[in-house]
């Protein structure tokens, strides 16, 4: 008897659980449909959290440039890292996104993600920073010191290799540590990190907090190296070319706005990232905001990934032609 009533109450609970799950599913799909009812689906956009390189996104949003182009943009994801955002592209959750060119190209080459670069978001914008006070006054002083870069295969990894190669050195001459840029600041503060190569605003923050000073602006290592891009999924580009073109126009308008209104851009950058205006301004002096893709530089980066065995790219030129929209 007891057993019988026990299993029937389990059955009742199971039924209750099933109907609750079903109700939740219907509710969620109903709200999903509600979004689509207005005038076609919104453009699902992602970007990295508080990334100064991606300021054009914030300017376009705040200034209403997306609406001006008749676009309904919905920010569906704010990511901590490029690979996370590329996973969202892979999963089909994004139509467009502001992301670093390095994770985007790696995901296309190694993960066969269907993603294309619609426009550049910025060039340059990284630097080699040495701890203050320092005994490192030039690249030739780096050997034996502890130097951090974000990850193997990142643009910063390549920049460090290029800088070292210009003095006949290689990564093997240093004690390389791989860590995220925010951690580099703490490591420098604790006195255990001698130098790092990272993107803005971590360079400007290290200077503002008196932790380190810029030894080498990345544009001096590789002038106009690519950095963040506006990427779109291949299916969005194919199925909704009008909206992709509108997105590109809004992005170019926002990029031009940043360059034409530098003071307001600094103020908006501070809003977007939570940095002080002084730090934002210092960081932005090292960032080149432009929508123009530097195809030659993208090809060089593809060759680096291929030669180092970091990405499955057989023909770099063909890869870049396919990756860059309009090439």
């Amino acid at each position: 008897m007891i057993r019988g009533s026990g299993s029937s109450s389990v059955r009742r609970m199971f039924a209750a659980f099933l109907s609750a799950a079903l109700a939740l599913f219907l509710l969620l799909s109903a709200t999903g449909c509600g979004d689509d009812s207005a005038d076609g689906p919104a453009v699902r956009l992602g970007h990295l959290r508080s990334d100064l390189h991606q300021l054009a996104f914030y300017v376009a949003k705040e200034k209403g440039f997306f609406e001006d182009e008749g676009l309904r943009v919905e920010v569906v994801g704010v990511y901590a890292s490029g690979p996370d955002e590329m996973a969202a592209f892979q999963a089909g959750a994004l139509d467009a996104g502001y992301v670093g060119i390095a994770p985007a190209m790696a995901a296309v080459a190694n993960g066969r993600a269907d993603v294309k670069a619609l426009a550049q978001a910025n060039l340059n914008g990284s630097a080699l920073v040495v701890r203050r006070p320092t005994s490192i006054f030039g690249l030739e002083d780096l050997p034996g010191h502890r130097v951090a870069v974000p990850n193997p295969g990142t643009m910063q990894d390549l920049l460090l290799r290029l800088a070292l190669a210009s003095r006949g050195l290689s990564l093997g001459d240093l004690q390389v540590a791989y860590m995220a840029p925010p951690e580099m600041l703490s490591a420098m503060f604790s006195g255990s990190l001698d130098a790092f190569l990272a993107w803005e605003p971590f360079v400007a923050r290290a200077e503002a907090e008196g932790l380190g000073s810029v030894m080498l602006d990345s544009r001096l290592i590789w002038e106009d190296h690519p950095c963040c891009i506006l990427a779109v999924s291949g299916s969005f580009l194919k199925d909704r070319p009008g909206e992709a073109a509108a997105l590109l126009r809004a992005h170019l308008k926002a990029t031009a706005y940043i360059n034409e209104h530098p003071d307001e851009a600094v103020r908006m950058a501070a809003e977007f990232t939570g940095l002080s205006e002084e730090v934002a301004a210092a960081a932005m002096r090292r960032i080149t905001f432009t929508g123009d893709m530097n195809a030659q530089a993208v090809l060089e980066y593809a060759r680096f990934l291929a030669e180092e065995g970091l990405a499955a790219i057989e023909d770099p030129a063909a890869f870049v032609r396919d990756f860059l929209v309009g090439q």
Partner: peptide, 23 residues
């Protein structure tokens, strides 16, 4: 292993393969 360990470790391997999408 995100605290800036030297160049080896399983956690570091997972993180860096994510960066170049060698999943």
């Amino acid at each position: 292993e995100m605290v800036g360990v030297g160049g080896s470790g399983l956690g570091l391997l997972i993180e860096s393969s994510k960066a170049v999408w060698d999943l």
